[in-house]
Computed example of a mutant assay.
Amino acid sequence: MENVNWIALVVAALSTLVIGFLWYGPLFGKAWMKETGMTEEKAKQGSMPLRFGLSVILAFFAVFFIYANSVITGGMPPDELHGMDVSKYHTFGHGVVHGISCALFIAMPVLVTNALFEQKSFKYMLINVGYWIVTFAIMGGIVNAWM
Protein backbone atom coordinates (compact mmCIF):
# COMPACT_ATOMS: atom_id res chain seq x y z
CA MET A 1 0.00 0.00 0.00
CA GLU A 2 3.03 2.29 -0.10
CA ASN A 3 2.30 3.26 -3.73
CA VAL A 4 -1.29 4.40 -3.19
CA ASN A 5 -2.03 7.69 -4.93
CA TRP A 6 -4.12 9.25 -2.17
CA ILE A 7 -4.69 12.42 -4.19
CA ALA A 8 -6.32 10.38 -6.95
CA LEU A 9 -8.57 8.66 -4.40
CA VAL A 10 -9.64 11.98 -2.87
CA VAL A 11 -10.26 13.56 -6.29
CA ALA A 12 -12.28 10.50 -7.34
CA ALA A 13 -14.35 10.65 -4.13
CA LEU A 14 -14.97 14.38 -4.63
CA SER A 15 -16.00 13.75 -8.23
CA THR A 16 -19.20 12.20 -6.87
CA LEU A 17 -20.32 15.65 -5.76
CA VAL A 18 -19.83 17.14 -9.22
CA ILE A 19 -21.55 14.21 -10.92
CA GLY A 20 -24.35 14.29 -8.35
CA PHE A 21 -24.87 18.03 -8.83
CA LEU A 22 -25.31 17.48 -12.57
CA TRP A 23 -27.24 14.20 -12.37
CA TYR A 24 -29.72 15.18 -9.65
CA GLY A 25 -29.80 18.80 -10.83
CA PRO A 26 -30.16 19.82 -14.46
CA LEU A 27 -30.13 16.31 -15.95
CA PHE A 28 -32.63 14.31 -13.88
CA GLY A 29 -33.43 16.48 -10.86
CA LYS A 30 -37.10 17.10 -11.65
CA ALA A 31 -37.76 13.47 -12.55
CA TRP A 32 -35.94 12.26 -9.43
CA MET A 33 -37.88 14.64 -7.19
CA LYS A 34 -41.16 13.50 -8.73
CA GLU A 35 -40.28 9.81 -8.30
CA THR A 36 -39.20 10.24 -4.67
CA GLY A 37 -41.88 12.70 -3.64
CA MET A 38 -39.14 15.16 -2.70
CA THR A 39 -39.97 18.87 -2.55
CA GLU A 40 -37.66 21.89 -2.62
CA GLU A 41 -38.60 22.63 1.00
CA LYS A 42 -37.92 19.08 2.17
CA ALA A 43 -34.60 19.02 0.30
CA LYS A 44 -33.42 22.07 2.26
CA GLN A 45 -34.17 20.50 5.66
CA GLY A 46 -31.39 19.01 7.73
CA SER A 47 -27.68 19.64 7.61
CA MET A 48 -26.34 19.91 4.08
CA PRO A 49 -22.68 19.95 5.23
CA LEU A 50 -23.31 16.70 7.12
CA ARG A 51 -24.96 15.09 4.07
CA PHE A 52 -22.19 16.16 1.73
CA GLY A 53 -19.44 15.26 4.20
CA LEU A 54 -20.79 11.77 4.85
CA SER A 55 -21.43 11.19 1.16
CA VAL A 56 -17.79 12.02 0.35
CA ILE A 57 -16.55 9.70 3.11
CA LEU A 58 -18.75 6.88 1.79
CA ALA A 59 -17.60 7.63 -1.77
CA PHE A 60 -14.03 7.33 -0.51
CA PHE A 61 -14.82 3.81 0.75
CA ALA A 62 -16.27 2.94 -2.67
CA VAL A 63 -13.35 4.37 -4.62
CA PHE A 64 -10.86 2.58 -2.40
CA PHE A 65 -12.66 -0.68 -3.19
CA ILE A 66 -12.49 0.11 -6.92
CA TYR A 67 -8.80 0.97 -6.52
CA ALA A 68 -8.03 -2.21 -4.61
CA ASN A 69 -9.82 -4.42 -7.11
CA SER A 70 -8.77 -2.81 -10.36
CA VAL A 71 -5.45 -1.10 -9.81
CA ILE A 72 -3.70 -3.23 -7.22
CA THR A 73 -4.48 -6.72 -8.51
CA GLY A 74 -7.64 -6.63 -10.59
CA GLY A 75 -8.82 -9.46 -8.37
CA MET A 76 -6.00 -11.70 -9.60
CA PRO A 77 -2.47 -12.44 -8.45
CA PRO A 78 -0.24 -9.55 -9.65
CA ASP A 79 1.83 -11.79 -11.93
CA GLU A 80 -1.32 -12.94 -13.76
CA LEU A 81 -2.94 -9.50 -14.14
CA HIS A 82 -3.61 -8.98 -17.86
CA GLY A 83 -0.34 -10.72 -18.69
CA MET A 84 3.08 -9.42 -17.74
CA ASP A 85 2.99 -5.83 -19.07
CA VAL A 86 0.33 -4.20 -16.88
CA SER A 87 1.35 -0.59 -17.64
CA LYS A 88 -0.74 -0.46 -20.82
CA TYR A 89 -3.84 -1.15 -18.71
CA HIS A 90 -3.31 1.85 -16.44
CA THR A 91 -5.56 4.08 -18.51
CA PHE A 92 -8.70 6.05 -17.84
CA GLY A 93 -10.70 3.80 -20.17
CA HIS A 94 -9.59 0.61 -18.50
CA GLY A 95 -10.50 2.07 -15.12
CA VAL A 96 -13.93 2.95 -16.50
CA VAL A 97 -14.48 -0.72 -17.35
CA HIS A 98 -13.61 -1.76 -13.79
CA GLY A 99 -15.81 1.00 -12.35
CA ILE A 100 -18.78 -0.02 -14.48
CA SER A 101 -18.25 -3.66 -13.47
CA CYS A 102 -18.36 -2.69 -9.79
CA ALA A 103 -21.53 -0.65 -10.37
CA LEU A 104 -23.29 -3.39 -12.33
CA PHE A 105 -22.34 -6.29 -10.09
CA ILE A 106 -22.37 -4.63 -6.66
CA ALA A 107 -24.27 -1.32 -6.59
CA MET A 108 -27.07 -2.16 -9.03
CA PRO A 109 -28.28 -5.36 -7.30
CA VAL A 110 -28.36 -3.56 -3.93
CA LEU A 111 -30.15 -0.47 -5.23
CA VAL A 112 -32.69 -2.39 -7.32
CA THR A 113 -33.46 -4.87 -4.52
CA ASN A 114 -34.14 -2.01 -2.10
CA ALA A 115 -36.25 -0.16 -4.67
CA LEU A 116 -38.31 -3.28 -5.42
CA PHE A 117 -39.23 -3.76 -1.77
CA GLU A 118 -39.85 -0.02 -1.36
CA GLN A 119 -42.19 -0.30 -4.39
CA LYS A 120 -40.34 2.42 -6.27
CA SER A 121 -40.82 2.98 -9.99
CA PHE A 122 -38.61 1.67 -12.77
CA LYS A 123 -37.75 5.30 -13.59
CA TYR A 124 -36.52 5.80 -10.00
CA MET A 125 -34.31 2.72 -10.35
CA LEU A 126 -32.89 3.90 -13.68
CA ILE A 127 -32.06 7.35 -12.32
CA ASN A 128 -30.25 6.04 -9.24
CA VAL A 129 -28.51 3.08 -10.87
CA GLY A 130 -27.50 5.29 -13.79
CA TYR A 131 -25.90 7.76 -11.39
CA TRP A 132 -23.81 5.04 -9.76
CA ILE A 133 -22.77 3.51 -13.07
CA VAL A 134 -21.51 6.90 -14.28
CA THR A 135 -19.97 7.72 -10.89
CA PHE A 136 -18.15 4.39 -10.51
CA ALA A 137 -16.96 4.67 -14.12
CA ILE A 138 -15.47 8.12 -13.49
CA MET A 139 -13.95 7.08 -10.16
CA GLY A 140 -12.43 3.97 -11.74
CA GLY A 141 -11.06 6.03 -14.61
CA ILE A 142 -9.47 8.58 -12.29
CA VAL A 143 -7.71 6.11 -10.01
CA ASN A 144 -6.59 3.89 -12.87
CA ALA A 145 -5.20 6.76 -14.95
CA TRP A 146 -3.29 8.27 -11.99
CA MET A 147 -1.15 5.23 -11.34
Rank of each mutant, 00 (worst) to 15 (best):
M1Y: 08
E2T: 10
N5F: 05
I7V: 12
I7D: 02
I7E: 00
I7R: 05
A8V: 07
V10G: 05
V10H: 05
V10F: 02
A12E: 01
A12H: 05
A12P: 00
A12F: 07
A12W: 06
A13C: 04
S15T: 02
T16F: 01
T16Y: 00
T16M: 05
G20C: 05
F21S: 01
F21Q: 03
L22A: 12
W23I: 11
G25T: 10
P26Y: 01
A31S: 13
W32Q: 09
W32P: 06
W32F: 10
M33K: 10
K34I: 04
K34T: 13
E35W: 07
G37T: 07
M38Q: 10
T39L: 06
E41Q: 14
E41Y: 02
K42V: 14
K42E: 09
S47F: 02
S47V: 10
M48P: 04
P49M: 06
P49R: 03
L50G: 07
L50M: 13
R51F: 03
F52I: 15
G53A: 05
S55P: 07
S55F: 01
V56C: 12
I57H: 07
L58K: 05
F60D: 08
F61N: 10
V63T: 14
F64W: 13
I66S: 08
Y67S: 11
A68R: 08
N69E: 10
S70R: 08
V71P: 06
I72K: 12
I72D: 15
T73A: 13
T73W: 13
G74I: 04
G75M: 11
G75C: 04
G75E: 10
P77T: 05
P78A: 07
P78G: 05
P78H: 02
D79T: 14
E80W: 14
L81Q: 14
H82W: 15
M84W: 12
D85Q: 11
V86G: 03
V86H: 07
V86K: 15
K88S: 10
K88T: 15
K88V: 13
Y89C: 15
F92E: 00
F92R: 07
G93S: 12
G93Q: 06
H98P: 03
A103W: 00
A103F: 01
L104D: 06
I106R: 12
I106A: 15
A107R: 00
V110D: 05
V110H: 10
V112W: 01
T113C: 07
A115P: 06
L116M: 12
F117D: 05
F117Y: 11
E118N: 12
Q119F: 02
K120H: 04
F122N: 12
M125P: 11
M125L: 06
L126V: 04
L126W: 00
L126D: 06
I127S: 03
I127P: 02
N128L: 03
V129P: 10
Y131H: 08
W132M: 08
V134S: 06
V134L: 14
V134Y: 04
A137G: 12
A137R: 02
I138N: 04
M139G: 05
M139K: 00
M139V: 15
G140D: 11
G140Y: 00
G141H: 04
G141L: 04
I142H: 03
I142F: 08
A145Y: 09
W146K: 04
W146T: 09
M147Y: 08
